[in-house]
Amino acid sequence: MQIFVKTATGKTITLEVEPSDTIENVKAKIQDKEGIPPDQQRLAFAGKQLEDGRTLSDYNIQKESTLHLALR
């Protein structure tokens, strides 16, 4: 499925993911596309910060959802 990640600079990244993917996997995909190390990424959805060990389906993130990326 496709999801979107909006960066602090307003850029939107499109990612191909599975509901079973962990947040860690998603951060690795962002690193592949943007070169941002996962340990510098903070992802949020619906106002909640997402934890590495959880999956997209844990957070009820569905196709075409938009996550927000902040850098630490």
Rank of each mutant, 00 (worst) to 15 (best):
M1R: 02
M1Q: 04
M1N: 04
M1C: 03
M1F: 14
M1T: 03
M1L: 06
M1A: 03
Q2C: 05
Q2V: 12
Q2K: 14
Q2P: 14
I3L: 06
I3S: 00
I3D: 00
I3Q: 00
I3Y: 01
F4T: 07
F4D: 03
F4Y: 07
F4N: 05
F4S: 05
F4K: 07
F4V: 06
F4R: 06
V5C: 03
V5M: 02
V5K: 00
V5D: 00
K6V: 12
K6F: 10
K6Q: 14
K6L: 13
K6N: 09
T7M: 13
T7E: 06
T7D: 14
A8P: 12
A8Q: 10
A8T: 15
A8G: 11
A8E: 09
A8Y: 08
T9N: 15
T9Q: 12
T9P: 06
T9S: 15
T9K: 15
T9C: 05
T9A: 15
T9V: 12
G10F: 05
G10M: 07
G10T: 06
G10W: 05
G10P: 06
K11V: 09
K11T: 14
K11D: 11
K11M: 12
K11G: 09
T12Y: 06
T12I: 15
T12P: 05
T12K: 08
T12S: 08
I13S: 02
I13Q: 02
I13C: 03
I13H: 04
I13W: 07
I13F: 11
T14Y: 07
T14Q: 11
T14F: 09
L15S: 00
L15G: 00
L15R: 00
E16Q: 08
E16I: 12
E16M: 13
E16G: 08
V17N: 01
V17Q: 02
E18G: 09
E18W: 15
E18N: 10
E18Q: 13
E18D: 14
E18F: 14
E18C: 04
P19Y: 08
P19E: 11
P19G: 07
P19N: 07
P19Q: 07
P19V: 09
P19C: 04
P19L: 10
P19I: 07
S20I: 09
S20Y: 12
S20Q: 11
S20N: 14
S20K: 10
S20V: 10
D21A: 11
D21P: 01
D21L: 06
T22E: 04
T22N: 07
I23D: 01
I23E: 01
E24G: 13
E24P: 04
E24N: 11
E24K: 12
E24I: 14
E24F: 13
E24Q: 13
N25M: 15
N25H: 13
N25C: 04
N25D: 15
N25E: 10
N25L: 11
N25Y: 13
V26S: 01
V26M: 04
V26A: 02
V26D: 00
K27Y: 03
K27N: 01
K27S: 02
K27C: 02
K27V: 02
A28C: 04
A28R: 13
A28S: 09
A28K: 11
A28E: 12
A28Y: 13
K29D: 04
K29G: 05
K29M: 14
K29H: 09
K29S: 06
I30H: 00
I30V: 05
I30R: 00
Q31N: 14
Q31G: 07
Q31E: 12
Q31Y: 15
D32P: 02
D32C: 04
D32W: 12
D32M: 10
D32A: 15
K33R: 09
K33A: 10
K33S: 12
E34R: 05
E34V: 10
E34M: 12
E34Q: 09
G35V: 03
G35N: 06
I36W: 10
I36H: 08
P37S: 14
P37I: 06
P37E: 13
P37D: 15
P37G: 05
P37R: 06
P38V: 15
P38N: 10
P38F: 15
D39N: 15
D39L: 13
D39P: 07
D39C: 05
D39T: 09
Q40V: 10
Q40M: 08
Q40K: 15
Q40D: 10
Q40Y: 10
Q40C: 05
Q40N: 12
Q40A: 14
Q41G: 03
Q41S: 03
Q41L: 04
Q41M: 12
Q41T: 03
Q41C: 04
Q41I: 10
R42L: 14
R42E: 14
R42G: 05
R42S: 14
R42A: 14
R42P: 02
R42F: 10
R42D: 08
L43P: 01
L43A: 01
L43S: 00
L43I: 07
A44R: 12
A44M: 09
A44W: 14
F45T: 03
F45G: 02
F45Q: 03
F45S: 03
F45A: 04
F45C: 03
A46G: 11
A46E: 15
A46Y: 10
A46D: 11
G47V: 02
G47T: 05
G47K: 05
G47R: 04
G47W: 05
K48R: 14
K48N: 08
K48Q: 06
K48W: 08
K48M: 14
K48S: 10
K48T: 14
Q49M: 11
Q49K: 09
Q49P: 09
E51M: 11
E51Q: 12
E51H: 14
E51P: 03
E51G: 04
E51K: 09
E51A: 08
D52A: 07
D52R: 04
D52M: 06
D52S: 07
G53L: 10
R54E: 05
R54C: 05
R54G: 06
T55K: 11
T55C: 04
T55V: 06
T55G: 03
T55F: 06
L56D: 00
L56W: 01
L56R: 00
L56Y: 01
S57W: 10
S57C: 04
S57D: 15
S57N: 11
S57H: 15
S57E: 08
D58H: 14
D58N: 07
D58E: 11
D58A: 07
Y59A: 03
Y59M: 03
N60D: 13
N60Y: 08
N60F: 10
N60A: 14
N60I: 04
N60W: 05
I61P: 01
I61H: 00
I61F: 02
I61Y: 01
I61M: 03
Q62A: 08
Q62C: 04
Q62Y: 10
Q62D: 09
Q62N: 08
Q62M: 11
K63C: 05
K63Y: 07
K63T: 13
K63D: 15
K63Q: 15
K63E: 12
K63F: 08
E64W: 10
E64A: 10
E64G: 13
E64C: 05
E64N: 15
E64F: 15
E64Q: 10
E64S: 12
E64L: 14
S65T: 08
T66W: 07
T66L: 10
T66Y: 08
T66E: 07
T66F: 06
L67M: 04
L67T: 02
L67P: 01
H68F: 09
H68C: 05
H68G: 05
H68L: 10
H68A: 08
H68P: 01
L69S: 02
L69C: 03
A70L: 08
A70W: 11
A70N: 12
A70V: 14
A70P: 02
L71D: 06
L71E: 13
L71K: 08
L71I: 11
L71G: 08
L71F: 09
R72I: 13
R72V: 15
R72S: 14
R72C: 05
R72G: 15
